[in-house]
Amino acid sequence: MLEALKEAAVGSIQSIKQIAIIVIPIMLVMEILKDMGLLDRIADWFSPVVRIFGMRKESAFPLVIGIIIGLSYGAGIIFKAAKENKLSKKDLYLITYFLVAAHAVFEDTAIFAALGVSAVLLLATRLAVAAMFTFLASKVIKETEKEVNL
């Protein structure tokens, strides 16, 4: 019993140290990139890309922010964009489908990478699969455009 408690204390603290070493620098770099305005620029680059999903170019901003920062922050921006009437219902649904599959990708990837999993493999698979699914969904929703109740 005492042995198990010791094992848990040492093991859990070691794991947290291992993860903190990776996660803290990554969050620091993200904050610097944010202040440099790089996220806005990435969103701009993605404006033509979201056309592939049949979305308006305004969708790029909430999509990119959600992918990089996270779902709850992304949802806030989605609500704001929806209120300003910049997005159609279909755009909204497609962004949300993409984001439930892939959000906060750097944070999540960093945590798993700290355990030894290849970051490139995880990140590439997650983004590629989310993009493929969103593309498929964009075709399905188009057919029933009047009734967007997925």
Binding site: I16, I19, A20, V23, I24, P25, I26, M27, L28, V29, M30, E31, I32, K34, D35, M36, G37, L39, D40, E58, F61, I65, I77, K80, A81, E107, I111
Partner: peptide, 28 residues
Amino acid sequence: MALQTGPITLDTLKRGLKSGIDVTWQLA
């Protein structure tokens, strides 16, 4: 729409460090 951006200051580093420590704390 745009995020608030500005020059990289000590504040940027502080916020970054804080969010990194936040994640680590949530995790712990």
